[in-house]
């Protein structure tokens, strides 16, 4: 039982981080119709900027987190300006390669700036644990779950209760019609890239205290966030969050009860099955084509 509770909470916490990354994908995908393959390296960069602000600038931890989120929002806008805006009307492949190139640049900058040796980011709660049903749960995991819940709620409100959200949804449902109604496409894509950048930094500072920080920190979460988006059908916030939690749980429970060697494989097997059997996603209903 302790084992199950422990694996379950870790799975939910990991899933929560994947959800934050996946929400960034969702935002950009809704507003522009593309996927930003640099998201994973933005997560890494966010964690490194927080480490830099906390150690080199000696800011308090929350201040360092805020610096990371603000910096990454700016980086998101930069990526939009240099790697997406000039080629907005070209084929999807070009956009993917271009964001991939941006990812390489970010990765290389991190290596040049901080080197390749692993470092650590302190969590605000250190290594404290609480006992739940006999299982020792790191408080950081509970913090991750709490922050993600707040973040999801805020995004839901943003999507469904503000002018910005209405415009994003309009772009997602019919790009051309939305454009003809006077929605400023360029501004919206800058805003969503910026917001997604901030979200990746948040994911970075949430996940960094649970593991060693290397330049590969964000790669795994990005892949799992892809898987989560596919499970959720790339449609709604709820779908993506449920998909992300499922991915986190499958990874932890599969690793715990089947074989830890293949823990990283189970979520992808689930994802490939979803692509094979229900490509519109378990919870999604959208089938669209960009002609």
């Amino acid at each position: 039982m302790e084992r199950f509770v422990s694996l379950f909470v870790t799975g939910v916490a990991q899933g929560a981080v994947f959800a934050v990354v996946a929400l960034g994908f969702l935002l950009i995908h809704k507003a522009t119709g593309v996927i930003n393959f640099a998201q994973g390296d933005l997560v890494t960069l966010g964690a490194y900027i927080a480490i830099w602000a906390a150690t080199d600038l000696e800011l308090p931890l929350l201040g360092a987190y805020a610096v990371a989120v603000a910096a990454l929002a700016a980086v998101g806008v930069l990526i939009e300006r240099f790697a997406y805006a000039p080629i907005r009307d070209r084929s999807i492949h070009v956009v993917v390669i271009s964001t991939l190139g941006a990812a390489l640049v970010i990765r290389a900058v991190i290596v040049l700036w901080r080197g390749t040796s692993p470092t650590r980011l302190r969590g605000p709660l250190g290594f404290e644990v609480v006992e739940v049903l006999g299982a020792r749960i790191p408080k950081q995991n509970l913090l991750i779950i709490g922050v993600t819940a707040v973040c999801v709620a805020a995004l839901w409100l943003l999507f469904h209760r503000t002018q910005f959200g209405r415009q994003v949804r309009a772009l997602a449902s019919d790009r051309m019609a939305a454009q003809m109604q006077g929605i400023r496409v360029a501004r919206m894509s800058m805003l969503t890239f910026g917001l997604a950048g901030g979200l990746s930094a948040l994911a970075g500072v949430l996940i960094a205290p649970t593991r060693a920080v290397t330049v590969d920190l964000g790669f795994g979460p990005m892949l799992y966030a892809f898987a989560a988006s596919i499970l959720g059908g790339m449609g709604s916030i709820g779908g993506v969050v449920v998909g992300a939690l499922a991915i986190g749980l499958v990874q932890q429970l599969g690793g715990g009860y089947l074989s830890p060697d293949y823990a990283e494989v189970y979520p992808f097997v689930l994802m490939l099955l979803v692509i094979a059997l229900r490509p519109q996603g378990v919870l999604g209903s959208e089938v669209r084509a960009r002609l």
Partner: peptide, 23 residues
């Protein structure tokens, strides 16, 4: 297996495939 996936899903599926293959 992934014949029903479109551009992005295919890209992501192949990314996952190579990750699985390395493991």
């Amino acid at each position: 297996l992934v014949v029903r996936s479109d551009h992005f899903y295919f890209a992501i599926a192949t990314l996952a495939f190579s990750h699985i293959a390395l493991i």
